[in-house]
Computed example of a mutant assay.
Amino acid sequence: MTRPQLEIADIFRHHGQQWRDTHQGHVSLSQLKVMSAIENCRTQVLGGHILRCQACEHTHISYNSCRNRHCPKCQASSAKRWLEARQAQLLPVDYYHLVFTLPKEVANLAYYNKSVMYGLLLKVAAETLLTIGGDVKRLGAKLGVTFVLHTWGSAMTHHPHVHGIVPGGGLSADGEHWVSCKSGFFLPVRVLSRLFRRLYLEKLYLAYQSNSLMFFGRDKPLEDEKLFAKWLNPLRKKEWVVYAKRPFAGPKAVFAYLSRYTHRVAISNSRLVKCDCNGVTFRCKNYRAKTASRYRTMTLDNDEFIRRFLLHTLPSGFHRIRHYGLIANTGCKQNLVKVRQLLNVIEVIPETKDLVEEKPIKQEPIFVCPECGGPMMINEILISQLKPRAPPMKLVN
Rank of each mutant, 00 (worst) to 15 (best):
K123I: 10
K104H: 12
G134D: 06
S77H: 08
L102T: 06
R86T: 11
V99T: 15
E127S: 13
W82G: 11
E127N: 14
A110G: 01
Q89L: 11
L102G: 03
G133T: 00
L91I: 09
K80L: 08
L91T: 07
K80H: 14
K114E: 04
L120K: 04
A85C: 11
H97G: 08
A88M: 11
A85G: 08
C74W: 05
A88L: 14
T128Q: 15
D94M: 11
G133A: 02
Y111I: 12
Y96C: 00
L102I: 10
Q75L: 00
L91Y: 03
Y95F: 14
H97P: 07
K73V: 05
C74T: 02
L91M: 13
T131Q: 15
Y111F: 11
L83G: 12
Y96T: 00
Y112L: 12
L102R: 06
V93E: 14
T128A: 12
L122D: 03
A88K: 15
L102S: 04
E84V: 12
V106P: 03
E105Y: 01
Y111R: 15
V99H: 11
L83D: 11
Q75P: 00
Q89P: 06
R86M: 11
Y96H: 07
K104W: 10
C74H: 03
K104Y: 11
S78Q: 13
L129K: 04
A79N: 09
A107M: 13
K114G: 03
K123W: 07
V93Q: 08
W82K: 07
P92W: 02
L91H: 03
L129N: 03
E84W: 05
G133W: 00
S77R: 07
Y96S: 00
N113E: 04
R86W: 04
A126Q: 15
Q89T: 15
Q87M: 05
K104R: 13
A126T: 07
S115D: 05
N113G: 00
Y96A: 00
Q89Y: 10
Q87A: 12
V106L: 13
A126I: 02
L90V: 09
G119Q: 04
P103G: 04
Y118M: 06
